[in-house]
């Protein structure tokens, strides 16, 4: 099993969710996050005064998938979240040792 952690634009969450669902992945955790990548935010002007917008609002999506679905899931996320502009986000893959369903105690079911 692997955990896929994707940082995407806020407006892309529904597209990513739909793309994952088409690949048979329905469970996920979505969190509001703020941060910056290489672009390190930008400056904005309001009423003539410049201010730095260093931490940009993004959404973090976490899904745990079986090993054989990892590549498809990554591809689905990247296609759905891509605009081609700076700030499209990142995808990380992290190994998962074990998973349990709390209600039933079932092991290693995603």
């Amino acid at each position: 099993m692997k955990m896929i952690k994707a940082i995407v634009r806020p407006n892309k969450v529904d597209d990513v969710k739909d793309a994952l669902a088409k690949n048979g992945i329905s469970g996920m955790t979505v969190t509001e996050v703020r941060g910056h990548g290489r672009q390190r935010g930008h400056s904005a002007v309001y009423l003539g005064s410049e201010y730095e917008v260093s931490l940009l609002p993004k959404m973090e999506i976490e899904v745990v998938v079986p090993n054989d679905l990892v590549d498809d899931a990554i591809e689905a996320i990247m296609q759905a979240a891509r605009t081609g502009e700076i700030g499209d986000g990142r995808v990380f893959v992290i190994p998962v040792e074990q998973g349990r369903i709390i209600r039933t105690g079932e092991k290693n079911v995603v």
């Binding site: 806020p10 509001e32 996050v33 703020r34 904005a44 002007v45 309001y46 917008v53 609002p57």
Partner: peptide
């Protein structure tokens, strides 16, 4: 209304105001 949403709302306000 999280600080995250508040920031998004303010950014849209500023961009639209400009």
């Amino acid at each position: 209304m999280t600080p995250w949403k508040e920031e998004l709302l303010w950014r849209l306000y500023v961009d639209t105001y400009n």
